[in-house]
Amino acid sequence: MALHTYRIAREPYYCPAGDEIALFEAAHADRLPVMLKGPTGCGKTRFVEHMAWRLGRPLVTVACNEDLTASDLVGRYLLEAEGTVWQDGPLTLAVRHGAICYLDEIVEARADTTVVIHPLADDRRALPLDKRNELVTAHPDFQLVIAYNPGYQSVAKDLKESTKQRFAALEFGYPAAAVEAEIVAHEAGIEPEVARRVVAVAERSRNLRGRGLEEGASTRMLIHAGRLIARGVAPEAACRMAIVLPLTDDSDLRDALAAAVGACF
């Protein structure tokens, strides 16, 4: 089985925030392409991993960046002793053999790369391989999922309308405080009470969103802080290192945030 290594053996830990699991299952049943919208580090990737495991599908993940070419996605000819052989790219692999293909941070990819997914995301459900002169019809189990952070305010980094319109969307935000504390405690291995304090720090930083900070602390940052605490770092120092300093270079805000961190412990 071609996608053997892409199967997820153990249940990825995922704490639902609402009915996203049921909604995704419904979308998957119809193989609708799904867009996960939300700020970075709020659990989109983890959610897809969990869903792939839950639905028993292999998961092919591609982290997009501005150097990613269409060939990197669909595949290319390689040289061998006897001649050239075609090698499927990750997207083609998923299309042919029926995996969930997850394109993370899709806006980072160049526009010409993004368009190769268009025929997969509408009724055609097919992927043309121009170099090979082949049209790969999607396996019945194939599903396309992309992650998109609408928070970027760059006109250069927005999805084209024609891309957006092909997807159903699920919105992700930071989980409610109690849920987020549970996640942090679980992922970082710290006491629930300490995790709650770390989440209180996150709330402080999120209060500054749009009032100086572009984005508040992500769940991922909280887990980093939690891990430092688990290693014996004092909570305030851990939050400073994992949250305050990475978030901003503005000295006024840093000072204010550091003082607010002090109020949390």
């Binding site: 402080r204 209060n207 009032r211 006024d252 000072d255 204010a256 945030l257 003082a259």
Partner: peptide, 15 residues
Amino acid sequence: ERRLRAYGTALWGVD
């Protein structure tokens, strides 16, 4: 003032 306002906002969410 700017630092203080940010501090107050961080604590209480209002400015």
